[in-house]
Amino acid sequence: MQVTDNQIKFIDQYLENSGIKYLDIRYEMTDHVATVLEEKEGDFYDEFKAYMVLHKKELLESNNKFSKIARNKAIKLLFGNLLSVKGLLITGSLFGLSLLGLNHMNFEKLVYVFYLTYFVLILVISGFNIYHKRTKKEKLWSGTHKLMEVVSFIINGIMIFGINTFKVPKEKGDDFYFIIYQCVIVSIVVMTIVTSRQLMKKYKLRYEG
């Protein structure tokens, strides 16, 4: 049988409703299912149902494994970016700026600037996500979304559990480590945005030409 455009949409929608939320994974699975069905002669919906009864579990398992691989790949890329010349320059510049800032403001104010930077970065990411959801432009790609999930989880963990993050160190010598710590975290957030954009570009080039 020949699988029509509407039937392709039906397969894709079924996979999405089954929990396969990433577009890059669904493209491959939709093609696989459609190719299998094209070799059958019966009614599309009967054959589809029969196929899913036998293979849905495997498709879902494959989806989970793919998501994990995409997550690991994205994290590897993030670390690569953090340790690249660009990443090290960003961290170094932040550190230099913080030390320079200390000449013009006291330590409490510098902590406030770090807090504000976090706030602005998180606002930018959230605003971007809300805009895409509202305009329904959002396309979920496995690597990008998984990376955002992991980094958001870590940052939220730091904010919630690392209550000392924004506390001014009591010992004078701890200032140095405190600034390094803050610079590294801000760099991770900045490089997450950079890495996400890289991945997004790659996905768009691969799947949208």
Binding site: L59, S62, F66, I69, A70
Partner: peptide, 15 residues
Amino acid sequence: ITEGALYPALHKLEG
């Protein structure tokens, strides 16, 4: 080769 074995293997090799 089932879907559950093939695709994770392909994605792993790609990774």
